[in-house]
Design a binder for these strands. Structure first.
Lengths: 264, 264
DNA sequence: CGCCACTTTGAAACAGTTCAACGTCAGTGG
DNA sequence: CCACTGACGTTGAACTGTTTCAAAGTGGCG
């Protein structure tokens, strides 16, 4: 991914259609609020103000760089559709994905509090996102303190997910780790209304999953075959179907407490 | 660690000395504010209110359980002295430490937003901590929105550190990972005034370090010898001395951006 | 039809683990 | 004051989960 491709993707891909914009904006905001404002603390005023603070809907192609590691963005992006990933590059060219972002996730929100990004953000699928200028967010949080609570909660959830990844990476075998990951991703996807009862959209390559789990592509492939063989889930054509939730949960030693009460 | 030992440690160890309390409270709060309020947004009023919200100073022995995994504490603890660790147990009895907490760290602050803890907190050394009741914190944040900003920033920093650990665990060799860890811990310790120019207090066992790095005790020992052999640092009698910062930084591919501008 | 990105397979190499033993040191009690 | 204890650090050798390298298979798409 070169600098030019980046520009191409972020600017040329913008779709200033006045018809689709409101729909995407609502989808993103609804998912955000549904996940993080379960106690209904947010006033209608605050929601309206947040909605008005939105910049123009932007579309990124799969593979596009949404923000660059070490850059200093003056806005944060709310995902309205698609899947994005935060990742860090290490010197030998390998990379580690530290988070996946789905609809309703405020990517880079922490950039509002620190001027240089410690990671990059890439679009794994085609991603539709809505920018919120930091200047506007600053004004908004002064006016509506309950919004800071919402944002704080978002960072808390981020950290909680990171911690579980640490546990899985540090003290689980590859199979358990992968099982844990699919449990988490299934619940997160379901919480924002992606997919139905036991299936969810998962348009990602094995190499990208490897970068998230801290494994090699080859090993991801083998572990995947093992879990498939155990009849835990199916994965194909960009969609995962959970076949044996109990067993998957068990293998991954998955305890959903840490997700809080996201979604339903 | 049994439930009884826990009670013993949390209650019997409390030292209600009216002489030492203010000193510890100030130490904890000063470190907290110094790390997270660099832009001096916090009003004197807010600081005073926070100070008044403090509960009685509590001392935990080394090894004591400060809060239990899956419990629902009604307060959060601010570390005023000593080192604590958040850790998760996995089924085979192993554990993964996900964070170390030094002076000025608000342990469990996120518990304010979710009722069950997804991890336990242990005192690694003798720890002096100050409890803040969630009820009081709730009132405080309504009255002083700038405090939420401070807490939010604290969660953001937590998450940033977690991410770097993920990168180190997932894509670095044990030696690099350990080098990275010592870089980070050195800067964090220095930021809150522990130790001098090139040394800092580090009263931890190799087994605990292993639990943090996701390695076996044996391997931690060997890697430690390797790094010592390279002349990167010394570690003994509860104190680490950095001998070759450049080389250590290099080996750990350490980029301190993610720590924000903590401390000085 | 042929290309390209992605998935799958096999075999050899390796980083890190496990097990089991021994060394060291500070504290404790006789 | 010395022997005993227990927690912690160190060592060696065998073992294993995962990586690496290299090649072949699959499938969607222009």
């Amino acid at each position: 991914m070169t600098a030019n491709q980046h520009l191409e993707n972020t600017t040329a891909q913008a779709r200033p259609s006045s018809i689709i914009e409101p729909a995407y904006l609502d989808r993103g905001l609804d998912a955000l609020v549904a996940r993080l404002d379960q106690n209904r603390e947010l006033t209608a005023d605050a929601k309206r103000a947040l909605r008005n603070a939105a910049g123009p809907v932007t579309v990124f192609d799969a593979g596009a760089e949404m923000s660059r590691q070490h850059s200093s963005p003056n806005h944060s992006l709310l995902v309205a559709a698609g899947t994005a990933a935060r990742s860090n590059l290490v010197e030998n060219g390998e990379r580690q994905i530290t988070a996946f972002h789905l609809v309703g996730d405020f990517v880079d929100l922490h950039a509002f509090h620190s001027d240089r990004l410690d990671h990059g953000v890439d679009a794994l699928t085609r991603v539709t996102a809505i920018p919120f200028a930091h200047a506007v967010l600053g004004r908004l949080t002064r006016e509506y303190p309950e919004l800071i609570q919402l944002f704080w909660r978002s960072s808390i959830l981020d950290a909680a997910i990171h911690r579980q990844w640490l546990v899985a990476m540090g003290r689980m075998t590859a199979s358990r780790h992968m099982a844990h990951f699919f449990c988490e991703h299934y619940l997160r996807a379901k919480a924002v209304g992606l997919g139905d009862e036991f299936s969810f959209a998962f348009e990602i390559t094995q190499a990208q999953l490897a970068d998230a789990l801290g494994l090699s592509t080859v090993h991801v492939n083998r572990v995947l075959q093992e879990l498939r063989g155990l009849g835990l889930f199916e994965w194909g054509h960009g969609s995962v179907t959970i076949l044996d939730w109990e067993a998957l949960r068990d293998l991954g030693q998955f305890d959903e407490t840490y997700l809080g009460a996201i979604g339903n």
